[in-house]
Design a protein around this nucleic acid. Structure first.
Lengths: 140, 140
DNA sequence: TTTACCTATGAACAAGTGCGCAGGTGTTTA
DNA sequence: TAAACACCTGCGCACTTGTTCATAGGTAAA
């Protein structure tokens, strides 16, 4: 495809053709980069927390278990949407379910996610909205 | 705040008609629920970490600042995609940029996100893939 | 039994998002 | 000067993802 071994400057990591400035730093960072599956799994978990609805759902569950209809009310989702979201969270082992008759009580089942939630909430609580939409910090 | 003490059966939170089982618990959870803007902002931040590419980008930056081309190589993104991702991260004040001539060096600029990253990586490192795809824990 | 209720699911739709390509801006070098 | 370089951006495509409507399963009450 491309033969870049003779030219002096550019150095690739494993065969990918691209300009590299700090080869040493790049090598170090690459070596410390988590494995692909772990990375994808991590991104997945963050993705679960990336929506207000699911976030409310999980925040509500930090207080203890709740049934689907209550969770729907608290999260502002329809019961259908809440059930669906809970199924997703359950598939990722973030929540677990306890069934009693026709009721289904969900609860947080991942200490890691709980820490993430605490950290996030604590942060937003004393951090005045970082509203984006501003790219250039306006330097007159 | 809202009147939910007299009616026996269905009780809504602020006017939404929906079945509620544990009215007290619901009221408590709702009262402790973060404000809408904070919630959206939090979900936003998690959304930034919800993709392998951006995650690699940020993980690389935990080691120190890097230029765009090096970040592209490390993250496996094209320079175009890396630039765009960095712009997004910059808009949310997650990273900051230092320009020297025609180079642009990016660095992590949010201690909170750094904690989130550390926590996530530490978790995935000693947690054997929680592969989903399993919904019902097999209950015959 | 029938009825009412809570939860779960299927399918279709709509919306958002990431990426590649090509071109542009500003800077350094020949 | 022109050329090479590093970064940035507009356009369009394709993929993923969330939401809703309607319906089905399963349990408790009449």
């Amino acid at each position: 495809m491309n033969d870049l071994d003779s030219p002096p400057p550019p150095t690739a990591v494993d065969g990918c053709a691209a300009r590299v400035v700090d080869a040493d730093r790049v090598a170090t960072v690459v070596s410390r980069m988590p494995a692909e599956p772990d990375l994808i799994d991590t991104a997945d978990v963050f993705g679960l927390l990336a929506e207000p609805g699911r976030l409310r759902l999980l925040l509500a569950l930090t207080e203890g278990e709740l049934c689907v209809c209550d969770l729907a009310v608290v999260s502002g989702l329809s019961e259908s949407a809440a059930s669906r979201a809970l199924r997703l969270l359950r598939a990722h082992r973030v929540v677990s379910v306890r069934r009693t008759g026709r009721m289904a009580y969900y609860r947080l089942d991942d200490a890691h996610v709980r820490m993430l939630l605490d950290l996030a909430v604590a942060h937003t609580e004393h951090t005045e909205a970082v509203h984006p939409e501003r790219d250039t910090p306006a330097s007159p």
